[in-house]
Design a protein around this nucleic acid. Structure first.
Lengths: 199, 199
DNA sequence: GTCTATACGCCGATAGAC
DNA sequence: GTCTATCGGCGTATAGAC
């Protein structure tokens, strides 16, 4: 019950604190510009030694972090597919999710859209082969079957649609947009959807 | 005349050889994963000391390289604007240029599209404030005046148009496309142009 | 202008006490 | 599980001979 109070705001164990600190620092300064000392300080530990209790080395921190992000994105997409039947609605909600993440968790989106993961995790699969993106391709293919989306190469459809979406989010992350990202969402959706929808 | 022979194939002085080696390595492995030793070997020198005759430090190599790339791109765009009157034609040729560069000088495009320059050159201006991109925005604005392009925020038009173009080129660079980039050029142009053209 | 030799600092990582 | 202490290595950079 004393412990309960702790649970309310933060039941974060050290493991997750490390991950959270690393996420912020990697997004801010990049993987190579953040030392274990930086992560240590941001976590509240005194020395880097504490880190090694939880992760084998710096790379493994990044790996765990990346896996977490992809997992959670994958789960969110599953949820969206479950709640919506029409591919167009599914895609619309995925866009909503990505805009919301850009607003509320820009560090996460930085990881997904701008950080070059393969520079420090050379063994990871290409992003397109990754669970969440495979699912997005499936949505697109379903949209073609149901005649909502033009019948072209799914990868090309992805390219057109998420080209526009991702460029918007990237520019938002870079601070190149005048207004909040969310302000662009409905317009950007329309233009992107228009690039792939039937007729 | 003896010297003339040299001029034909390569009048590259050591300065440029260093830049060329650095370009290749930075594009391949990233800035932080390439040591001065790597650059030294790729240049044909024996030790890193030779490098310091030409550049103050590693960062200055990257800076010179980046400046060169932006300059040459800027000049190419000037040339395109001079040779074509209609903004749509100018934009079409810029797209042609970018596709050609992606095919023939992928390292250069890697630098422009995927490398996070600010991680190692923190004082550079944002890409959008850079000469070639200011000129592209001007083309877009001209297109609006001449009623070829929808009258929206130029930055948004840039976002839509180059969102599609750049995503295509990025995927080509990542090896995610089945065919040569050039094979996609005309289709991608049409979709991108359609996203911003009037009616 | 390129080599030899060498210095220096930082960071990642380990051993072991508490 | 966190701290103290410390090591080893790599990568940047400099001084000076050729």
């Amino acid at each position: 019950m004393d412990q309960e109070k702790e649970n309310n705001k933060k039941k974060l164990d050290t493991q997750d604190e490390i991950l959270l600190a690393a996420l912020k620092l990697f997004a801010e300064k990049g993987y190579f510009n953040t030392s274990l000392t930086d992560i240590t300080e941001a976590t509240g530990l005194k020395t880097t030694s504490g880190i090694y209790q939880h992760y084998k080395n710096k790379q493994m921190i990044a790996k765990a972090l990346y896996a977490n992000i992809l997992d959670s994105l994958s789960i969110s997409i599953d949820d969206i597919r479950r709640r919506n039947k029409k591919p167009s609605e599914q895609l619309r909600e995925v866009v909503g999710l990505l805009f919301r993440l850009t607003q509320e968790a820009p560090d996460v989106m930085e990881f997904l859209l701008v950080i070059k993961v393969h520079e420090f995790l050379p063994d990871e699969k290409p992003l397109l082969d990754t669970a969440p993106f495979v699912k997005i391709i499936k949505i697109i293919q379903a949209g073609m079957k149901s005649d909502e989306i033009r019948n072209i190469d799914p990868v090309q459809a992805y390219m057109y649609f998420f080209g526009i979406i991702n460029q918007t989010l990237r520019m938002a992350l870079a601070g190149s947009l005048a207004k909040d990202v969310e302000a662009y969402q409905s317009q950007v959706w329309m233009v992107a959807w228009n690039a792939i929808c039937k007729k």
